[in-house]
Design a protein around this nucleic acid. Structure first.
Lengths: 248, 248
DNA sequence: CGAGGGTTTGAAGTGCATCAAATAGTGTGG
DNA sequence: CCACACTATTTGATGCACTTCAAACCCTCG
């Protein structure tokens, strides 16, 4: 898109994104500058595959602006969505451990701007700066809890409840009486993210509407009675409502 | 069980378990001794709950001998099994991050011996010894990949395939032509671990037998043609066969 | 032997997937 | 600005996988 931006603007982008990223919290300015030397900006057009599962890893990424899908796919073309990430999120970094290959594939959901850094510089900075190791541990444990929740939802919640739960996480941690929100990406992708087929998603959303009184207008969803939705969705969940993190 | 063992034996147990644990690899003898001072042995009888989801955490554990179930349960009594751990595995340690509470409940599947350590000493040793932070990162990334695989299996494999895949992981990384193995814990628990009901497990195992020619005698399973089982189970999976880690 | 848990089997129901087709929405070139 | 092409979404009809409820069976252990 703006690949003709002047150098100064690019640098601003990198610094802004890096300081926006929890992983590098606590670094000194000089350490950040060092990182910037190694970083490059990548523009990934919608549908662009950044890497595939089990490919040998050389880089990891930070989303500057856009959406990235992490997924795994079988030989016969089925795919399981692991996560969908946006601004400030990091991915591909776990390839630093284990056998050094990516544990899933990554693809741009829409035109996306990313920062690419070599795995080797992550290794260096972790060894040089213990804070970064702690930041990384923190982000990994957060992700881990998210995955545990996901696994629970897949086994205990039905399709309408999973959608309801997703909507509630979009609301954030405060619990207003009513709220209007927009689905962050298209319904087909959201269906995959929630482990169901598009047709099932459509029907499940309709059922959620009739059961909880939400109203739907394309990607815009109005929840007139949040408490009602909480009762409907969270009854089959081990967590009490404001389920913190909203990593869509 | 052997709660009347003499002190020297207990110390031997602790040192053996600690050095068996990947998390503490690379520590000096004196650092290990320090840890031992803080450690205590816990005997958990079958069914004993060590902690529950969202409880404030003060300790984490290492399995010395036995089996531990990590799970989450809803108000209406449904539960989702997150993981089942045995000797050398660590759990509860992620409570060090986030809001300091456990992200799932833990229960002894059978009489189990554990080592308990305070979260605070984990924090100390991580800050004092960067190696431990790296070890922990390594173990968390391993777990993360395991969870990603799990999520994939739940969405792409059917019940018989999930069982077959589990059996193959029990075989380890070498791929013999044929093998006899024993289920590590009872079928009801295994069913939960694989995200299905006991009845479904029973029927799915029978189907796996008729489709792949394995033979079943209680908990003993003989696989006469491993390649056949691989074809049957792994066709719906993104990973090529020897799927490494066998964290049951 | 008898009690109790684990496991299997049967019959019926439910939820989601699949296949097929209609409809709505979006961007394109004329 | 409209018609077309293409994609996203919805709707309908049907099938299959897993669950549920119920009962039998099996096995171990006191």
């Amino acid at each position: 898109m703006q690949s003709s931006a002047p150098v100064s603007v690019i640098h601003t982008d990198i610094t802004a994104t890096l300081s926006n990223c929890a992983l590098f919290r606590g670094l000194s300015d000089s350490q950040r500058t060092d990182l910037m030397q190694q970083a490059s900006i990548v523009h990934a057009a919608k549908g662009k595959t950044l890497y595939v599962h089990q490919e040998e890893a050389s880089s990891f990424y930070i989303v500057s602006q856009g959406w990235i899908k992490l997924f795994r796919e079988t030989l016969d073309g089925n795919e399981a969505v692991i996560d969908i990430l946006n601004d400030g999120h990091i991915f591909g970094e776990t390839s630093m451990f284990g056998n050094g290959s990516y544990s899933s594939s990554a693809q741009a959901v829409e035109d996306t701007t990313l920062i690419r850094l070599p795995i080797s510089s992550l290794r260096q900075i972790i060894e040089a700066e213990p804070k970064v190791a702690l930041n990384l541990l923190d982000s990994m444990s957060r992700f881990r809890q998210q995955q545990e929740r996901e696994l629970e939802h897949r086994s205990l919640q039905n399709a309408p409840q999973r959608i309801g739960c997703f909507l509630l996480r979009l609301c954030g941690t405060e619990m207003p009486d009513e709220v209007t929100l927009h689905l962050p990406y298209d319904k087909t992708l959201l269906a995959a993210r929630l482990g169901m087929k598009p047709e099932t998603f459509s029907r499940a959303l309709a059922k959620l509407r009739s059961e909880t009184g939400i109203s739907i207008n394309g990607a815009a969803i109005h929840i007139s009675n949040v408490r009602h939705l909480v009762e409907y969705s969270c009854s089959a969940c081990s967590q009490s409502f404001p389920c913190e993190d909203a990593g869509c």
